[in-house]
């Protein structure tokens, strides 16, 4: 057991170091953005005195290094500052937006991950026959279409024509869980279609790889049912690559769905970030960048750990 614990601790420590490096990059990146923050906030009508006042107020005349440490220190204590554009507390605004993003990602994941793995298993079971070709064909089509187009098509059919689901996925704290679920039905359907193919294809490929092994032949000769054999014996050995792809897609669901947010008017993190980038609202951009990086690193860390734990060879290194 001890080597595993060391391994896990090592991985987490590495993740933290990576996060720190990312925070330096984010800070440096926002420093490099063209245009002056004070100028961007005050707009075209800015007078020189107002600009100077704004720079002093924002501490822009201090050195970049001291500003970095001040920012990092505050962020570690959960204080992300206030948005320059509307004076709202960033942590509070992000809290709500992040909650919405995670809700949509969770609903989508709950549908897409089991579905993708099941379809992958099914594709292996009927390899090269019509169910396999149908599954591959449909999922590859849905991933090849741009997501906004998928969104518009589903919106037209299910919201405008059939009226089953709302076209505007606005959710707020006053809604019950079921109301929220109804509201996110369409965006999560689109996102499911977008991430399905990647996970399904990887499941199929990884399991097919294992299916060549001698022990599978033994199991077959033993007379096991095809689907049981795939799920019980082939799948566990194919887990590592599948988990990695699943985590990559989960990370995408959290950090990369701004197009869907715009199409379905969903109040998530993506739109929030884009609005503030446009206004050069640097504290918000930095905070969002840091949160996105943390989620990405965290999910990849989890994928690493699961693949290590699922593989006895990695679990007991010589």
């Amino acid at each position: 057991m001890v080597p595993i614990l060391t391994l896990v601790t090592q991985r987490i420590a590495l993740g933290l170091v990576l996060l720190l490096a990312v925070s330096v990059l984010i800070f440096a990146g926002t420093e490099l953005l063209p245009g002056d923050v004070a100028q961007a906030i005050l707009g075209q009508g800015a007078t020189p005195e107002a600009l100077a006042n704004m720079r002093t107020r924002m501490g822009l005349d201090e050195s970049a290094i001291s500003r970095y440490f001040a920012w990092l220190g505050a962020a570690l204590q959960g204080d992300l500052g206030v948005a320059l554009s509307n004076g709202r507390d960033i942590a509070a605004s992000i809290g709500q937006r992040l909650g919405n993003t995670l809700f949509l990602a969770a609903v989508t994941a709950a549908i897409s991950v089991p579905l993708a793995i099941f379809l992958g298993l099914l594709a292996v079971r009927y390899r090269d026959r019509w169910p396999d070709k149908l599954i591959s064909g449909l999922t590859l089509t849905s991933i090849s279409l741009p997501e906004f187009l998928l969104g518009y098509v589903l919106m037209y059919v299910f919201a405008v024509k059939l009226g089953w689901f709302p076209s505007v996925s606005n959710i707020n704290s006053g809604m019950s869980f079921w109301q929220k679920l109804n509201a996110v039905a369409l965006p999560s359907l689109v996102l499911t279609l977008v991430v399905l193919a990647h996970m399904m294809r990887m499941t199929r490929a990884a399991i097919l790889n294992v299916m060549q092994s001698a022990y599978i032949e033994t199991a077959e000769l033993k007379g096991l049912r095809r689907l049981t054999l795939i799920a019980r014996h082939a799948m566990p050995n194919a887990l590592a690559p599948i988990v990695n792809v699943v985590m990559l897609n989960l990370a995408y669901l959290v950090v990369g769905v701004v197009v869907i947010e715009v199409v379905f008017v969903y109040p998530g993190m993506g739109q929030y970030l884009v609005d503030h980038v446009a206004k050069r609202d640097v504290p918000v951009v930095q905070a969002c960048g840091l949160i996105f990086a943390a989620i990405y690193i965290g999910l990849n860390l989890l994928a690493d750990l699961i693949s290590i734990l699922s593989n006895p060879r990695l679990r007991h290194p010589k």
Binding site: Y152, Y156, A159, S167, V168, V265
Partner: peptide
Amino acid sequence: VINDSTARNSALQSGQ
């Protein structure tokens, strides 16, 4: 706030 014009049209057509 519905900044996307297609989304705005659908919202009106679907009565939202």
